[in-house]
């Protein structure tokens, strides 16, 4: 039983990270306001949302099973307060940070229509912190975190997200009215 919980806890952590990587990439794609890979814009947005939610489910599984697992020696307090853990407290603390940031992002996303675009966007910026922190947590805390295969895939993820962020920062990234307007050579006073 414990073996199973341990295995589920580890695997679900990897799956969650994998899904969040996909969600970050899809999120950046949907922010661009363009259809991506032949998918219409609303599909990109829906996919981004659903992949993120699935990632959250696996994150819950990851945290839940390890909470039940005596081997992991995880306290409920570790879910909220980082760096108090018994085993590799620093690396586990990063997991706590990522978890709390993900919760903030998910909850504000659900409440977007209520709290408004501004608060939603502000919270959504947390993903740019949560994702690298989660990755560091996986490398530093995971039993197989330093395996060659995992390191290679982590490096690939970093490359993909970094590439997407660079695209995000490029001047031609946004396909919005303001961008269309500046193409028309106009200045928008603000």
């Amino acid at each position: 039983m414990n073996e199973a919980a341990w295995a589920v806890g580890r695997v679900s952590g990897f799956v969650a990270l994998f899904l969040f990587t996909g969600s970050v990439l899809l999120g950046i794609a949907s922010r661009s306001g363009r259809p991506v890979f032949g998918l219409p814009r609303f599909s990109v947005t829906l996919l981004h949302r659903n992949v993120a939610l699935l990632g959250t489910v696996f994150l819950a599984l990851h945290v839940g099973t390890l909470l039940l697992d005596p081997l992991a020696r995880l306290n409920p307090i570790d879910l909220l307060v980082p760096f108090l853990g018994a085993f590799r407290p620093f690396w586990q603390g990063l997991g706590t940070v990522a978890l709390d940031l993900v919760l903030a992002v998910v909850i504000t996303a659900f409440l977007r229509h209520r709290i408004g675009q501004r608060a939603f966007k502000a919270a959504h910026w947390f993903t740019y912190v949560a994702w690298p922190v989660a990755l560091a947590h996986a490398v530093g805390n995971g039993t197989n975190g330093t395996d060659k295969l995992f390191l290679v895939s982590a490096a690939a993820s970093v490359a993909a997200v970094a590439g997407a962020v660079l695209w995000r920062l490029s001047p031609t990234f946004l396909e919005t009215a303001r961008a269309r307007q500046s193409l028309a050579g106009e200045e928008r006073p603000r």
Binding site: A177, R180, Q181, A184, E186, R188
Partner: peptide, 12 residues
């Protein structure tokens, strides 16, 4: 007011 797209672009 440059708030609404059709006005912002259309009048121009």
């Amino acid at each position: 007011a440059r708030q609404c797209g059709p006005c912002m672009f259309g009048l121009r």
